[in-house]
Simulated scan of single mutants.
Amino acid sequence: MYINVLEQGLLTTVQDLGRTGYQQFGVGATGAMDDVAAKLANLLIGNDENDALLEITVIGPTLRFVQDTLIAIAGADLSATIEGERVPRWKPVFVKAGTVLKFGRPKNGCRAYLAISGGFNVPIIMDSRSTYLRGGFGGYKGRALQRGDMLQMNNKYSKLTQQLLTYFHNQRNTTPFITVNWTIPPSISKYVENKDAIYFIKGPHFNHLNVEATNEFLTTTYTVTPNSDRMGYRLNGVPLKLSKSLQLLSEAVPVGTIQLPPDGQPIVLMADRQTIGGYPKIGYIATIDLPRLAQFMPGEKVKFKEISVQEAQVTLAERDRVLTLVQNGINLAIRRMC
């Protein structure tokens, strides 16, 4: 069965958690910009956390469901409605056949994730279903969604998904969708609206900034520019200068690398980054804050705060522990419903 794309939105792509192990061949990792929201959207409806789902940027699509479908929306609040009724985020939602899902004005955050029961049925290329826009492969025909596309659904469901579907079928009524009376803890989802300083770890060339630039990077507020995208967040603020010019060889760059091009305006490399880079690397976004940075809209202000490698590891380990508890809680809530 299919989901019909009536309107494509600004940028809607099929993603999963990424394509790892191929950067040595020049193939980027891609995957969801906000992996926390993507994981939770899938887990809320009993999917595997790596199942293919839609990443929706700022202005969402309009979709018609041909069959009864279980969905979950996580991440940014993009004013989702079904037949004019607001759809809650961070919950499993049973959508009836023939209904239309629309997204409206963004209220907070930049990217929402739409998971469907069983995930989207798109080809696995290099161990991933994620769309690599610059390479023109993966996801749905290697591109963003367009009006008239028909997205195939995977009708192989996990036991948890089958239990949810059975529960909702037994609760059918005249409303266009049905949801549940539980959700994940707000303390887990509040990061989407959190605009506090982004944690970073000093990079190998941070100490090559001159004295003024070192202070400016730690105190300046930068603006996310409109030409930021899945490849990189381009920032605008006080230009940073090096104490002396550097001649660098290109080398591998991980997600979150903060590069300093000749104009002195930092670029943060994101999910669709190139595999190597030759600009000075003044820092790396701490992994725990990559999902939060992905929710910053163009025009919003961002500041940076230094964190040590050890502190970053501890906070990430704690977050992963909490997410495991949330997953166990979701599984338990689903089992108790049936």
Rank of each mutant, 00 (worst) to 15 (best):
Q146G: 00
L332F: 11
G119R: 04
I198E: 04
A32N: 06
S79I: 08
K301T: 13
Y279N: 06
L6N: 00
T257V: 13
S228H: 02
I258N: 04
P291E: 07
F296Q: 06
P106S: 09
A29C: 11
P239N: 01
A317D: 03
L164F: 04
N108A: 07
D127A: 11
K96E: 06
E311P: 01
A213F: 03
L235P: 06
G18F: 05
I45C: 13
T179V: 11
I307V: 15
L17C: 05
V238R: 10
D34A: 11
N210Y: 00
L332S: 13
S128C: 10
E306N: 08
P261T: 12
V322I: 15
E212A: 03
I124L: 10
T287Q: 14
Q23C: 14
R172M: 12
T131F: 00
N227M: 04
K107I: 10
F65L: 01
S250Q: 08
I3V: 15
V238A: 05
V314G: 05
L332D: 12
K102W: 01
R319H: 06
N170S: 15
L54F: 08
P106L: 12
K303H: 12
A72L: 00
N155R: 14
L53V: 01
G277H: 09
P261D: 04
Q15F: 09
E7T: 07
T183D: 15
Q171R: 15
T12V: 03
N215D: 13
A29R: 10
Q310E: 14
D35E: 12
G18T: 06
T131V: 13
